[in-house]
Design a binder for these strands. Structure first.
Length: 771
DNA sequence: CAGTGAGCGAGCTTCCGCTTGACTT
């Protein structure tokens, strides 16, 4: 007979709690939700008050059976899932599925996994909060209705297998709208004026420092005029202002801020951050990594105090309590922090070490003193003009938390940029070394990184810590958006310099629009977005989630019946679904670019069956139209007639090599060279399929042949189709375009022909078995 | 790994939020 069974969501949590509770308590985990709506159909009985049809998920059957058995033997079952909507629902599903009786079932909650918090929770059990459960059912049913009624419209009207949902569709909308802002942005040029002045140090050394004219000059002409006036100018310091300033640390990490900082400082994708964090959590090194709370337990606060005192001294301690600002935060957990704050670093993989140290620094810094600064602003009068130069400098008087953590900035770059300002005095005259007029262009808005999009979604209250990373993956997997680097384009900028009373001009080049690891919407993302915004504006509205969240809150308080809320929504929503299915045309995003000046045929671009294509000629009236795939980076929305006409120049024969034609084309995976029935990819960003010449093509062919030869470990004279190759995951066997595993114990170089045949036979058998 | 684009039709796709393994071609 078991005295007590405690059920929590996570196995790692179960292990920790079991230690705290002692022998009488058996702690098990449910591994999250155990039931969900059936996937076979809508899973909601529309004519029966939206009754959800729950089934036990396939991968949970085993654990449910086990829990059922133990629960039957236990005297008391403690449901200890999280204290939020989803946690309450998990507790309720457990009590339903395990047939728990109210008299021996107790619901307990705690916000932090510390011994005292858990013991306190045990002292204050309650029943299941059905209102809170109902708010979760409303959330679940609403998301299912939206997702499972919108997606099929897209399959009919745009393309199969597409998807739409309350969260993902808004995420795509953010990216599409930002992209359009950037595409339509017209950069404006102006001139920034920087002067280098010399200052005689106490030890007789001349030191340069920088000052700027606060306003921008609108044209080159005005800049030249200003520089000319400076040829015979004198410079006097007319004002010095010294102001104290303060900087304070950021709160400890939540899921969203951890993803942002890991992206910025360590270059991690949001998925990578979560995978590494999961590892650290399972090893007991950090607290739970899916949280929206910035709260630290009292235990953590006192550990932080001790650690800071030991490491930096008492003057660096400032214990702070942070409040969550995020919309819709449910705060079931602590902030993400090291379990043991005295451990500054850990053993483990390089990525784990780096992420741990980031978390340690952020947590410790959050409990450290403000940094005290002194900002100096000096005004330098120019005798010949009305403009004044302004020099600013900043000195750190007390580093405080900056000793361990600088936020969201590349620390080295920041250090380099800082202007060291000398101790100037009023009425002091200065000598000018040079003045530079630099042409500056206004910048469009930034494109989103994965983590930047998560930040935006969190601000809008859309999505939860457990779904940020999956959402980012979904919109990429559907092809709506792509994460990539873009080289940008060169741009000339004017530089005008005054030095030794002589004005010189030079032209520099800079890269505009260079992007690294940013999210770009694809054509299909734009088409789907426009379609949804057209027909379902209310759901695509950035405030839709906030609006329904308010209603979920009312349901949780018992002020609103969940089925009534759903009914209110569904009546009008479903009507729109029907209308849209009936009325709207199939959408291809078609755009007519104009006429081919040579053939006179209409040229258009649209979404074809296999992706965006350009089409020359009308299917109805002309003879068979020609098609050409758009190149990567080209958008239906922005491609020009000229660019589209160029696409029809492919495939093209550029010459011959070894007696065979060399043909350039564009395929599913980008531009390629075809030679003797073999394909060779062009180099991304280096080779242009429209201009590549035969010599370069030969080079690429030879390069590929060389690297293929390197891959081969062994061949057999008995059958040249069998190849032992070196792959990404180690050696493998390749035979007629199929790959087979080589047992780890075998030295691939020693594999015999007979053994290879054996492996192929075995591999074919097991692959049919798996199906 | 690669070049397609007519049309028919069966059968499939899909949501968000909780949680980890079992997979490694």
């Amino acid at each position: 007979m078991i005295e007590n069974l405690v059920i929590v969501e996570s196995p790692a949590k179960a292990r920790t709690i079991e230690r705290f509770l002692g022998k009488d308590f058996h702690v098990k985990s449910s591994f999250g939700h155990i039931r969900d709506l059936t996937k076979k159909n809508l899973g909601i009985e529309l004519d029966n008050k939206y009754k959800p049809q729950y089934i036990i998920s396939e991968d949970k059957k085993k654990i449910v059976a086990e829990l059922k058995k133990i629960a039957g033997e236990a005297k008391i079952v403690w449901l200890a899932s999280d204290e939020d909507r989803e946690g309450e629902a998990i507790a309720w599903h457990l009590s339903e599925v395990l047939n728990l009786k109210t008299e021996n079932t107790k619901r307990i909650v705690f916000h932090e996994i510390t011994k005292s918090a858990i013991q306190a929770a045990i002292q204050q059990p309650r029943g299941i909060d059905q209102n809170l459960v109902n708010s979760q059912q409303a959330r679940r049913v609403l998301d299912r209705l939206v997702g499972f009624e919108l997606s099929p419209i897209l399959w009919k009207k745009i393309q199969p297998s597409l998807s739409a949902g309350r969260v993902q569709s808004v995420a795509v909308r953010l990216l599409v709208e930002r992209e359009r802002e950037i595409l339509s942005f017209k950069p404006a040029a102006s001139y920034k004026i920087e002067g280098i002045f010399m200052f005689l140090d106490q030890d007789g050394q001349e030191r340069p420092f920088k000052a700027e004219i606060p306003k921008r000059f609108p044209s080159k002409q005005k800049t030249l005029e200003f520089l000319n006036k400076n040829k015979d100018a004198e410079y006097v310091v007319t004002n010095i202002e010294v102001k104290p300033a303060k900087r304070w640390p950021s709160p400890p990490f939540t899921t969203s801020t951890l993803q942002q900082e890991a992206s910025w400082k360590l270059g991690f994708s949001v998925i990578q951050t979560m995978l590494v964090a999961q590892k650290l959590y399972e090893a007991g090194k950090i607290t739970y990594m899916r949280t929206d709370s910035v709260n630290l337990s009292n235990l953590a606060l006192s550990a932080a105090k001790k650690t800071i005192s030991n490491e930096f001294g008492n003057e660096y301690i400032k214990i702070r309590k942070y409040k969550t600002k995020a919309k819709g935060a449910q705060e079931a957990h602590e902030a993400i922090r090291p379990t043991y704050l005295q451990n500054k670093s850990i053993d483990g993989a390089a990525t784990e070490k780096k992420l741990y140290e980031l978390i340690w620094k952020r947590t410790i810094a959050s409990q450290m003193s403000d940094a005290l600064l002194e900002k100096t602003v000096a005004t330098i009068d120019v005798s010949t003009t009305e403009e004044d130069f302004i020099a600013t400098g900043e000195v750190i008087k007390f580093d405080g938390f900056l000793r361990v953590y600088t936020e969201s900035k590349n620390e080295e770059a920041e250090g380099k940029k800082k202007n060291i300002l000398p101790l100037l005095k009023i009425n002091q005259t200065l000598t000018n070394k040079s003045i530079l007029g630099i042409e500056k262009f206004t910048q469009p808005q930034f494109r989103y990184t994965e983590a930047g999009l998560v930040k935006k979604l969190e601000e809008l209250g859309i999505g939860r810590p457990s779904t940020y990373a999956p959402t980012i993956s979904t919109i990429q997997n559907r092809g709506y958006v792509v994460k990539e680097d873009r080289p940008g384009s060169e741009r000339k900028i004017n530089l005008i310099r005054l030095e030794n009373k002589v004005i010189t001009e030079e032209i520099q080049t800079e890269f505009a629009g260079r992007e690294k690891g940013k999210l770009f919407p694809n054509d299909i993302g734009m088409i789907v977005n426009d379609f949804l915004v057209d027909h379902f504006n209310d759901i695509l509205n950035y405030n839709f989630t906030a609006k329904v969240e308010k209603e979920f809150d009312e349901i949780a308080l018992g002020k609103l019946d969940w089925t009534e809320m759903i009914d209110e929504f569904y009546q009008s929503f479903h009507k729109k679904v029907e209308e849209t299915l009936k009325c709207s045309e199939k959408k291809t995003g078609e755009r007519i670019l104009g006429e081919d000046p040579v053939t006179g045929l209409t040229v258009l671009v649209k979404m074809g069956r296999y992706g965006p294509v350009a089409q020359s000629g009308d299917a109805g009236k002309d003879k068979k139209p020609r098609f050409a795939r758009l190149l990567k980076g080209q958008l239906i929305e922005t491609i020009t007639l000229e660019e589209a006409l160029n696409l029809f120049k492919l495939p093209r024969i550029i010459g011959a090599y070894e007696g065979k034609d060399v043909i350039i084309g564009v395929g599913k995976f980008g531009p390629y060279i075809r030679h003797n029935d073999k394909f060779y990819s062009l180099k991304k960003g280096i080779d242009d399929p429209l201009t590549i010449e035969i010599e370069r093509a030969k080079e690429l062919i030879e390069e590929k042949r060389k690297s293929d030869r390197k891959k081969v470990i062994k061949t057999f004279s008995e059958d040249p189709d069998i190849l032992i190759l070196k792959g990404r995951y180690g050696p493998y066997l390749s035979y007629k375009k199929k790959n087979y595993r080589i047992p780890k114990a075998k030295d691939p170089g020693e594999l015999s022909y007979e053994e290879s045949l054996e492996l192929i036979k075995k591999g074919q058998k097991s692959s049919t078995k798996n199906k």
